[in-house]
């Protein structure tokens, strides 16, 4: 079954890529805020892993709580998390699967030699057996405003 498209605001997507580049050769991680299938903000969090940050990330409970609080402050919801795979494809590993939560979007950016390349998003299956990839679309603020303007013109709203 094809999953619906995850729409990511262009500046949030740039933030994920920038964080991936800055953290290289280590993995970066952060929270994604938005609503349903829309990501409006990427919120960088510290990678607290004690298992080697070149191939692992960990968001501590305190940082998770901070992310939920931040989402409420923004009037948004916590819709997922992102992390980078330095010199590794943007596909979830077995370790990602074993540690995944349902419902959340898991966005992965592959960073090759310091340059962010492929960016993908994944959802855990209900039975925890695998991830399914969901399509991604980018949306800039300008495009959104333009589309809203066009809709207003069509409907005759002020």
């Amino acid at each position: 079954m094809a999953l619906p498209t995850l729409v990511i605001r262009a500046d949030a997507e740039m933030g994920i890529r920038r964080h991936g580049r800055e953290a290289y050769p280590h993995e970066c991680c952060g929270a994604l805020f938005g609503r349903d299938q829309l990501v409006t903000e990427a919120f960088a969090l510290p990678n607290a892993t004690g298992e080697g940050a070149r191939r692992r990330f960990l968001v501590r409970p305190a940082d998770y709580r901070a992310a939920e609080r931040r989402a409420i402050e923004l009037g948004e919801e916590l819709v997922g998390f992102y992390h980078s795979h330095p010199d590794h494809p943007a596909r979830p590993s077995r370790y990602d699967l074993d540690h995944a939560w349902p419902v959340f979007a898991y966005v992965i950016v592959s960073v090759e030699g310091g340059n962010p390349v492929a960016l993908t998003s994944w959802r855990l299956r209900e039975d925890r057996s695998a991830f399914d990839e969901e399509p991604i679309a980018l949306e800039s603020h300008g495009e959104n405003e333009k589309q809203t303007e066009e809709r207003r013109e069509e409907t005759g709203e002020a």
């Binding site: 993995e27 892993t49 990330f57 501590r60 077995r94 370790y95 540690h99």
Partner: peptide, 11 residues
């Protein structure tokens, strides 16, 4: 109930 969110590139 508070999640630790974890993962990483290699198995």
């Amino acid at each position: 109930i508070i999640p630790s969110v974890a993962g990483g590139g290699r198995a």
